[in-house]
């Protein structure tokens, strides 16, 4: 029996090392939304002849990426609706009013993933998109996912464009007309972790 004890100890040690290593390889990597190198912008049709552009300046988010099991990856983004910026202060204040975003009632626009699967060049993410107090399921294609290591900081980046209709999010119908119902949202974000 004594001859077997060191042997068993080696097996247990080796097993724990292997399992630990496997765990660290499979564990999802958590990233924070990098404010400096990311942007959430939008554009909407005006009179069906031109585009109005704007962006949201206050965005936060977290995403975890599991390279081994992509379905376990998660993506979450929270946009402060009051940070809307179209380059004109008076217009921005108008957009914050209840006729549009109603930021005192619905201060945030949120996206939370519910399922993730890989596609060529990125991920197809399905999730709940909440805006103006209404939650609808959306599927977006996040392109990218390349990593960059610089010192202790690791980065990963994604970009996507999604199209949605304001009427599907309970926006006031009288505010839809001159400004088109359809809005394109462009998200270019970098995740950062130390």
């Amino acid at each position: 029996m004594r001859h077997y004890v060191p042997f068993l100890a080696i097996i247990i040690l080796a097993g724990s090392l292997v399992s630990g290593g496997t765990y660290s390889a499979c564990a999802a990597e958590m990233y924070d939304y990098d404010h400096v190198h990311s942007s959430v912008s939008f554009k909407a049709r005006h009179l069906d002849i031109s585009w109005i552009h704007g962006r949201f300046n206050d965005v936060s988010g977290k995403f975890s990426i599991d390279r081994e099991h992509p379905s376990k990856s998660t993506f979450a983004l929270t946009i402060k609706a009051g940070s809307v910026d179209t380059g004109n202060q008076a217009r921005d204040e108008h957009l914050r009013q209840p006729d549009y975003f109603d930021t005192k009632q619905f201060p945030t626009i949120e996206f939370k993933s519910t399922s993730v699967k890989t596609v060529d060049g990125g991920y197809e993410v399905t999730g709940d998109f909440t805006m103006h107090g209404t939650t609808n399921e959306l599927t977006i294609t996040l392109m990218g996912g390349k990593e960059h290591d610089f010192g202790k900081v690791k980065r990963v980046a994604f970009s996507t464009t999604l199209s949605l209709k304001r009427s599907e999010f309970n926006f006031d119908k009288s505010g839809i007309g001159a400004i088109g119902d359809k809005v394109l949202i462009m998200i270019d974000c970098e995740g950062v972790r130390e």
Binding site: I52, T86, A178
Partner: peptide, 11 residues
Amino acid sequence: GNHGFAVTVVD
């Protein structure tokens, strides 16, 4: 040439 939203507000 970027005269989109302003026209609406003028309206």
